[in-house]
Structure formats: C-alpha cells, structure tokens
Design a protein around this nucleic acid. Structure first.
Lengths: 216, 216
DNA sequence: TCATCAACTGACATGTCTGTCAATTCGAGC
DNA sequence: GCTCGAATTGACAGACATGTCAGTTGATGA
C-alpha cells in the first residue's frame, strides 16, 4: 500500500493526482451532501426522501445509493461532520481559557460563533422543527457534565449553595444552550452575537456563584 | 334540536342517561386515546401507525377512523388535553403567588409536579426521543414571555444588569424547563422533586437579580 | 320475535418511500 | 477508433402506512 493511497475522507485532496472519474464522483458526493444539508434544514429529516435529495442534487435516484448506503448514512455523515467541528471548536475554547469565568465565556462564544456560521447545521442539530434530536445530546452532554463537575467541586469547597444540584443544573444548561442557539440561528437579527454570549455566560456564572459574586 | 342533544365532548357525561351503544363508543374512544398515549410515549409519533394503536386498543383498524379523522387528530387531542391541563396548573400557580420570588418558585413547582404525575405526557411533549416538538412551545413560550416581561420592567427600573437580554433569557428558560422536566420525568429517581424545583427556581432568580441579591 | 341502526370488522385500493439492477453514458488508455 | 470499467440512469418491485367500505354484530324497542 502506497503512502499516497486514496482515502475515504469525505473531502477529496485536490492536490492528489486524480482521474476525471474520481473527480466526478467526489463532486456528485459533495452535491448530495450539500442538498441533504439544505433540504434537511428546511424540511426536517423525515419529510425529505432520498429521491428528493437526488433530484435536488441533479442526479438520478439510483446515484444516491451509489454514494450512500441509505438516507440514514447520509444524515449521519452530515451530523457527524457538524458535531466534530463543533466539538473541536469548543475544545479549543476550553484549552485557551485560563480562569473559570473566562472559560465559561469562551465556551459560550465558541458555541454561539459556530451557530452563527453554520446556521443550516444548527437548524438540523438543534431546531425543534427538524429531527436530529437524538444526535444533539452528545456534545452538549459533554459540555454539561464538564460544567457539572466544576460545579460539584465548588459545592465541595463550600463556595456554592447546595440548592443547586449539579446534575439538574447540567441538564438545564444543555436545554438552554440548545434552545437559545437554535432560536438565534434561525434569525441572527434577533439579538447581537455579543448579547447572546453575554446572557448565556451570565446565567451560567450566576447559577454557579449566586448572590455573593463580585458584580461584573 | 333538544336541549339534551348528544355532545361532541371527549368526556362523556356519566350522570346522563346513556345507551349501551353510547357507553361502548365512549369506552372504545378512551381506549384508543390511552393506547395512543402509551405507544407515542414509548416509540414516538412517526414510528406508531394508526393500525398499531387500534391493535393495542384491541379493536379493528377501521374502528380507529370511526373515532378520529386520522392519526394527527388523535395526536392533537392527546397533546391538547395535556397542554390544557399543564396551562391550568401553571395559571393556578401564577395566581396564588404573591411576591415575585414566590411566584417563580410556585410555577416551577407546578411544572415539576405536573411532570411527575404525567410522565407519559411529558415524554410525548418534551422528550428528545419523541416528536411533539412543534407542539411544546406554546405553553412554555407563554411562561417565558411572561418572565421576559417582568424582567424587562426590572431592567427599566434599573435593578437588573443589561447584559442579560430578556428575549434571550426567555428562550433560555424555555429550553431549560423542557430539558430538565423531560430528563427528570424519564426517571424520577434521578433527583428529588424538591431539588429539581429549587434548582430551576435558583437559576431563574439568579438570572433575574444577579450578584446583588439577598442571599436566601 | 323481528326490524332497525349505530358500532365494529378486516380485506383492500391507494399512495408513498425505498433500494435494486439491467442498460447506458462517458472518460481513460491502447 | 475501440475497448474497458466506473459512474450514472430511471424504471421497477417490494414494503408499508393510510383511509375506505361493504358486510357483520349486537343492543334496543316495537
């Protein structure tokens, strides 16, 4: 096997020597993904058929199955790609954060920033009107349990009232993030990016260090 | 038309003189609704067929359509009933509250209480795994915009920092309520009812009067 | 006992989505 | 120009959900 053997990566390497056939195949595949993204965002998973996607991409119905086992496979690829990107974005934010307050704000900014630049994907992942609801939880669950862990340690050291349960608060954060981001991505004129970030940050910080916080 | 003509009400009047046929009809209808609730809660709207519901209720497929125009009609009836009940419960809580803090806690208690006693309905209305997602928003939207209005007036009188945007906060509350309640209703051993209520209350109060609150 | 009628039955016609496959197109190499 | 094979085509068969309807059941009351 050569070092430069062809990859399964969804993104074809443009610098590699490719045949016209390979290029055509990659183009068709990309078109199908793009059409899937557009249609799923607009109509939701179960109101879009594989034939719809093929037609929107300008290829025959059978071609769809030349590239994807079934509709679920294409959907999975779209959402996995989105979630990977989002996860990376959040992890980068987590690493760059120094103190806790700053970290919270940076993660909120990463989430909101991602939402602003990937509105179709957010619509697919989080919107009430579409159906990726089973998928969404993983990233957020991670974020929330991280937040819950921090919160737990704050309780243990006594700097947080026990009335706020870490698990419940974690779920509350997940719900809040998903909803706010979906709402905002639907129409980003509804609020400025900064206000959204700031509100999410404040809620999380106030929930964490209530009452006896330094005023900002 | 007689004063006592038969009604379209889903709940038959037991004190009225009824024929055996009418009683049978009401029973069948109730069975279908009950089966729908069970199956929708377990499998979600679009993985349950009208024939499934009929079979679960122990009647023939055609009987379903003797009682409901179609699957959507039965689903609507289930969710409407649930939402009406929930709304009433929340409104009762809103009326009984005297001061703002108390009102917040009472509405949270009403929501959580409803969730504990109607776990199937909550699962249908709010769970990620089912599909009533379009329906859920109305009640919560109302709750949230009420909360947002109060919050706006607090901003206007200067007792709340402007960083927290009322609209965004309203969406955050909706998301938080829906998620927490769905999570808790799935397994009520996850946290005590009191802890859930208290956490929701704290988050909302802290979000409203941050930093310079009286400590509880 | 019998006629009536609403409730119920379940086979079926209809429409829709899915995934397949034999035939066709088209670029690459000879 | 010709052959090979990968990519594509689109008609089609199978699976399934939906809603209907002619026929059956059983309570009612004459």
């Amino acid at each position: 096997m050569s070092v430069n053997s062809s990859q399964n990566s969804p993104i074809p390497n443009p610098s590699a020597r490719t045949t016209a056939g390979e290029r055509a195949r990659a183009t068709t595949r990309a078109r199908l993904l793009e059409s899937g993204r557009t249609l799923f965002a607009e109509h939701g998973l179960h109101r879009v058929t594989s034939h719809d996607i093929a037609a929107h991409a300008g290829v025959a119905a059978g071609t769809f199955y030349n590239h994807f086992r079934d509709k679920a496979a294409l959907f999975r690829e779209i959402t996995n790609e989105a979630l990977t990107e989002l996860t990376q974005s959040l992890e980068a934010a987590a690493e760059s954060g120094t103190d806790y307050r700053q970290g919270v704000r940076q993660r909120a900014a990463a989430l909101v920033g991602f939402a602003g630049e990937n509105r179709e994907l957010i619509r697919i992942l989080f919107s009430r009107e579409t159906d990726a609801t089973t998928v969404q939880s993983d990233v957020l669950q991670q974020m929330a349990s991280r937040a819950a862990a921090v919160r737990k340690s704050l309780i243990d050291e006594g700097s947080m009232p026990v009335e706020i349960d870490p698990q419940v608060f974690g779920q509350a954060l997940i719900g809040m993030w998903a909803r706010v981001v979906a709402w905002w991505a639907e129409d980003t004129d509804r609020a400025s990016r900064e206000v959204v970030i700031e509100t999410l940050t404040q809620i999380q910080l106030n929930g964490t260090h209530p009452a006896h916080n330094d005023p900002l």
